[in-house]
């Protein structure tokens, strides 16, 4: 056996494993995008709760973010994946429905979203605090309800401050999807491992998977930087360094 790469193994059609890798890559992107969006939703509510919520809500959210930030993602994913699906199916049995089987993708998105939500909460909280209070007070003075102020003033105004953190979170989300390989969800990393195990071409497949991840990161980087520049276009440039 030689160490020279046999690139024929990467062919798209069945003797090659290209298709398996690309399907895995697509599933990784789906997971990351779904988890990221869920994380943003949790983050917005979390930040609003931390800033404007009652004492109990604030403390509970503090516990949520603290636990997520202190415990390894791998452990959290295992915990949410097994315990979450177990609890949900038990609950549905207790309520008289038939056992629900949550498909891997939804469970994975839920897990990534819960982890992302904790970080997004902190990002949004910091960003909302960076919005001059006068703007929010002015909106209140115009008689807008809390949700309307949030939608029309606070969220758009905090966006430029939140974007650098959100860009980082997207990078973390794409890389965290790999951890779902450990619970048997066949995203890119697990697909690469299966292909490598079947063909013994470990270096080739792991390097190809790495190249795909890297391409995703680099392309996202370019797009995010452009979005960031656009969102900051009205801001005083002293903050841009």
């Amino acid at each position: 056996m030689t160490t020279v790469f046999d690139f024929g193994l990467l062919a798209y059609d069945p003797p090659g494993w290209g298709r398996v890798l690309l399907v895995g890559f697509w599933r990784s992107i789906e997971l990351a995008a779904g988890g990221y969006c869920l994380g943003i939703v949790i983050g917005i509510f979390g930040a609003a709760g931390k800033l404007y919520g009652g004492k109990v809500v604030r403390d509970l959210l503090e516990i949520y973010t603290m636990v997520i930030r202190a415990v390894p993602e791998l452990v959290l994913i295992l915990l949410f994946y097994y315990v979450g699906t177990d609890l949900l199916s038990r609950a549905s049995v207790a309520l008289g429905f038939s056992r629900v089987d949550i498909d891997g993708l939804s469970a994975g998105i839920m897990v990534i979203g819960l982890v992302q939500g904790a970080y997004a909460t902190e990002v949004f909280r910091g960003a909302i605090r960076a919005v001059p209070t006068g703007q929010i007070e002015a909106a209140h003075a115009f008689g807008m309800r809390g949700s309307l102020v949030m939608r029309r003033v606070t969220l758009p105004a905090m966006l430029p401050h939140a974007l650098p953190g959100m860009a980082n979170l997207w990078m973390i989300a794409t890389k965290d999807t790999a951890l779902l390989a450990v619970v048997g969800f066949s995203e890119l990393t697990l697909a690469a491992r299966q292909a490598a195990g079947a063909t013994r071409a470990y270096l080739l497949f792991f390097l190809s998977a790495g190249a795909l991840y890297l391409a995703l990161t680099l392309i996202s980087n370019v797009i995010l930087r452009r979005v960031e520049r656009r969102a900051r276009r009205g801001l005083v440039s002293a903050r841009q360094q």
Binding site: A192, R193, F206
Partner: peptide, 14 residues
């Protein structure tokens, strides 16, 4: 830009 898990498997298996 790549997941640590992938790097670990690349080093160990590869």
């Amino acid at each position: 830009g790549t997941p640590l898990l992938l790097q670990m498997w690349l080093l160990y298996y590869g």
